[in-house]
Amino acid sequence: MAESVLSIRDLRVTFQTQMGELCAVRGVDVDIAAGEILGVVGESGSGKSVSFLAAMGLLPATATVTGSVMLDGVELIGAKKKLVRSIRGRLMSMVFQDPLSALNPVHRVGDQIVEMIQSHQKIDETKAFARAVELLEIVGIPQPDERAKQYPHEFSGGMRQRVVIAMAIANNPKVLIADEPTTALDVTVQAQILEVIQRVQQSFGTAVVLITHDLGVIARVADSVNVMYAGRNVESGSVQDLFDHPSHPYTRGLLSSLPQEGIERLVPIAGFPPNMLAPPPGCGFAPRCPHVIQSCNASLPSLVPFEGLMTSCIRADELRIGGLRS
């Protein structure tokens, strides 16, 4: 396996809330190599965003973060604020669902990219502006030199997301984290944005973490996948293995709840995710799992190798033999 540019170990995040301590992330590992696209899927509230916000050092003070986040050999957890700030936007950057939140409405788009470049590089205004125009071109904005002089409100949603991606890649980061970058966009525009992300990954060897709830998006662009549930990775592996023979009942449930041609009745997963103020002691999916047995509730299962995947289901082997796979 290629060396990881981003390596996360036993990441844990808890929030102090009025109702008590909320365990948002409960021991997550991530490995991603240069030029790889890692898809992260999972139930809403499973800790996808929080995991990577923690890696970026972007969580509020109410969050307690432990574990290890190594970026290109540098430990970020517990590191000085100054170091984390110098890395953010330079070695690792993040793109969110709502591009407007990342753009300043009163500044020209080109100037915002220039600012992003100059905050990390000593480079004169003219050169930085030329680079901004080049970046807009890379992300597929027509007439980039003119568009650079316009304001965010003069751009459509899809164009704004391109601008945000241009800003995120302005300093050639090693890792680009995209959190639901296409969720607010139409499918035809989503296809364009996914293509931009793939282009960035292929031309610059950027490692991309793509957080999405859309298994179709994962199938289209991801090389490998982490499936999250209740603050844990429940299954991970290559995209082919995961779709071909998912081992975890949650992954299987997710796949079979999708509408498919020729299927009369959809198969939902009964119940809903656990309350993370008091998560279950064992497998987080156990309360909804059709295959639950007593030992599932005994202790938190860890990921173990299984048929080319890593799975946290202690019954993976039995369920396969039993032919329960959907």
Partner: peptide, 13 residues
């Protein structure tokens, strides 16, 4: 529109 919809099958995609 139909061709842009991502399908949950890496081989097909």
């Amino acid at each position: 529109l139909l061709s842009a919809v991502p399908l949950p099958d890496p081989k097909v995609e």
